[in-house]
Design a protein around this nucleic acid. Structure first.
Lengths: 230, 230
DNA sequence: ACATTTGTATGTTTTTTAACATATTTTTAT
DNA sequence: ATAAAAATATGTTAAAAAACATACAAATGT
């Protein structure tokens, strides 16, 4: 049973909506569903992609190991979205690792089947082109801000990024993702100590409120100002 | 006359080799040739792409303006290669600027014509997918090294990157591109002063030889070691 | 030919941030 | 329930790199 895969492929909002019934059926027959627990590794740097991984439930961090094993988070994935497609389409091994930061449901579409369908579907191909091009713009942006902004600016930007990616809870201010201080640091190119310290400073300045891993944004404009200032 | 455009489109090695004679003819009729002097701006951050820009002769730097106007070079282009295609395919305005670092010949393929041909050519679409995916991998790599490596490591990596991108002159050691110290700094995420200082240090360590803007690499292994060490 | 600008070079100071040290709290395993 | 481990918090020190200052050389324009 891989009902989760079926749901994703049948979803009217997905990139697969352009496919006909036969094509969807073929994809479904060549997909597998996998469950991951929080902190499970989905793939590792150097692994060979076996298919297109679709995140159906849960949240995932994509990160690279840098100098001395220091981790840099390059992307945060949410459902419904694809992960690992860069390596798949570059026909390379993974250059980053993926880890579940919540329990996840994942649907993997077998590579050859996907490529077969891709060959005959311009819309599907073009939506992949658009995704990759957007992602590349984002990555270039990140390169500049992570290298040029100071700690406060980088952290402010990361908090806004998390808000934009995962949204807010019902209260309209709590970021809908719970990361460790270490993950926040690895996302923002700083040490864990500095992430903790700077979060505390933001809290003392009444820009955010901290409650364990819950982060409530009080002053959106303030955060944006800090982020833009660098 | 845009003979340069014709040469590019007819080139057996180019991505257009998969097209038939009619398609090539259509592209040629909808292409224009432009000449740029060294230091000319080809496009600016915020401009709207009007077509696929192909660099036929010369070298180009692609850079973003960051905090306080500080420049970060995100890509170096060489002939024959495309520039500005990220924005074109993301259907966005440019997020970076392109400037000729040598006199350049550029051929621009009109957007609508290209997209029309793209619709019917899986191979062309797939080669774009592959390019974007590779470029994204490169960008993610850069993000990590520019944020994590120390000055010496970043400079060493940049020198090796320039060597890999533009190759060496007949002597087998001089990097085949002449950049200002400022450009080297903007490529390596450091101040001009630090680029000059660190280049001097490398020279005094007999890793490189400096002669104006000519950089001769004496110790490739040494540079690689410094780059990997961080 | 000369002045002006631009690029290169190098020393000094200051700022930023990592590294280190050490509590304290929270979570996890037994 | 309790010990061990992991995560959070915060103060101190050290290292890295930016900022600043100044000098000199090379290229450019008139």
């Amino acid at each position: 049973m891989n009902v989760e895969c079926h749901n994703i492929i049948d979803n009217q909002m997905s990139v697969f909506s352009v496919l006909n019934a036969d094509e969807k059926e073929l994809l479904k027959r060549n997909s597998t569903c996998t469950y991951y627990k929080k902190n499970d590794i989905i793939y590792k740097e150097g692994d060979k992609p076996s298919g297109l991984i679709c995140l159906s439930k849960g949240k995932v961090k994509i990160f690279k190991e840098g100098v001395g094993g220091r981790e840099q988070i390059v992307r945060m994935a949410k459902p419904v979205g694809f992960i690992g497609y860069r390596a798949l389409f570059a026909e390379q091994n993974y250059l980053a690792s993926a880890e579940a930061i919540e329990d996840c449901v994942i649907c993997t579409i077998e590579k050859e089947t996907l490529f077969k369908i891709l060959k005959t579907n311009y819309d599907l191909a073009f939506s992949i082109i658009r995704s990759l091009a957007s992602e590349l713009g984002f990555s270039n942006n990140r390169t500049v801000t992570l290298t040029q902004k100071h700690i406060r600016g980088r952290l402010a930007e990361s908090l806004l990024f998390l808000k934009d990616t995962y949204g807010l809870e019902e209260d309209g201010s709590t970021i809908r993702v719970y990361l460790s201080r270490e993950d926040i640091a690895n996302l923002s190119n700083m040490t864990t100590s500095n992430a903790i310290r700077t979060l505390s400073t933001f809290a003392s300045e009444r820009i955010i409120v901290l409650d364990g891993r819950k982060i409530k944004i009080l002053d959106f404009k303030g955060l944006e100002r800090i982020s833009e200032l660098g």
